[in-house]
Nucleic acid binder design. Structure first.
Length: 281
DNA sequence: AAGAACTCCTGGATGC
DNA sequence: TGCATCCAGGAGTTCT
């Protein structure tokens, strides 16, 4: 059943935290979403939203905003399917061409959330985006991405390049895994100060990230276990494509050196100590 | 203002 | 067997 054109018949929140970004929280969310129709699907970085239908001849003013955090999923289920152990929010949907169905928000670690938010025009393009995501930069895979200006922004940052890659206000969509993979491909140490990188090096990093993410999407995403599945509950197959992430101790595919795991900014980073040397300038 | 640290959370893996 | 500790990380908030 298609999501677009479906109307929310009812909603139930099983974990208040999962709608913490909704104005009014769990108290008002079910009533606020009831009767709303999804008119399309949009994405920017790690935010996804479903604009809610507006009166005729007017643009949508609000949307159901979803962030998956680490472990969040949206899954379409039969109306009477068993509740998943980590079901946090349940929407019952009705379309005019199919039976009722269920859109489940499942999230073990509850870093994800959803809520109804206003759509606001961005300063640069006037594109309508959810207010809580308005500060998020264009996605790495957005064809309108201005790589040249992103390179300039990155090269003005006086901090480690990996921090910058994870900063969603610079460039969005890159998380811890793809940052490590892109830096390995570009042969840059994650703790290299961004402002010491050349334009060419910075370009290579961005293009590597794009290439890696595109390849991952074709493989159905990077998943490790049953926690990470697509809308139909299927796991991705991209782990076999990873060169460094989660491969500490294994040989580098380029030079054979043992991959290292280091910790900074309270996160793991994986790198080849030979290919990615930390040169200070 | 920019950059860094802290915080939220669950449950599988690991150690004693 | 059982209990404690570690680990995974996106991003908002708070700090320096």
């Amino acid at each position: 059943m298609p999501l677009i054109g479906s109307v929310v018949i009812s909603a139930e929140v099983f974990r208040d935290r999962s709608v913490r970004m909704h104005d009014g929280g769990a108290l008002t969310f079910p009533n606020d979403i009831k009767g709303q129709m999804f008119s399309s699907v949009r994405r920017r970085g790690k935010f996804l939203w479903l604009p809610l239908s507006a009166p005729e001849n007017s643009v949508p003013a609000s949307a159901l905003l979803v962030h998956f955090g680490m472990s969040g999923q949206l899954r379409l289920n039969e109306i009477d399917a068993d509740h998943h152990q980590h079901l946090r929010v349940k929407l019952v949907l009705q379309s005019n061409i199919a039976a009722q169905t269920r859109l489940d928000f499942i999230d073990q670690r509850t870093f994800g959330h959803l809520g109804i938010v206003d759509l606001v025009p961005t300063l640069d393009s006037g594109e309508l985006v959810p207010a809580p995501a308005a500060h998020i930069a264009r996605d790495a895979l957005d064809y309108r991405l201005d790589i040249k200006s992103v390179v300039n922004v990155i090269r003005r940052k006086n901090t480690e390049i990996k921090r910058v890659l994870l900063d969603q206000t610079v460039l969005s969509g890159i998380g811890n895994i793809y940052a490590d993979e892109a830096l390995w491909m570009a042969k840059i140490h994650p703790q290299t100060t961004a402002s010491t990188l050349s334009s060419n090096q910075t370009n290579v990093i961005i293009k590597s990230a794009k290439m890696i993410m595109e390849k991952s999407i074709i493989s159905g995403g990077t998943s490790f276990d049953a926690l990470y599945v697509n809308v139909n509950g299927e796991s991705g197959r991209n782990t076999k494509n990873l060169a460094v992430y989660g491969r500490a101790g294994q040989p580098c595919q380029r030079c054979g050196s043992a991959i290292e795991r280091i910790v900074f900014m309270n996160r793991s980073s994986h790198l080849c100590p030979t290919c990615q040397q930390w040169r200070s300038r």
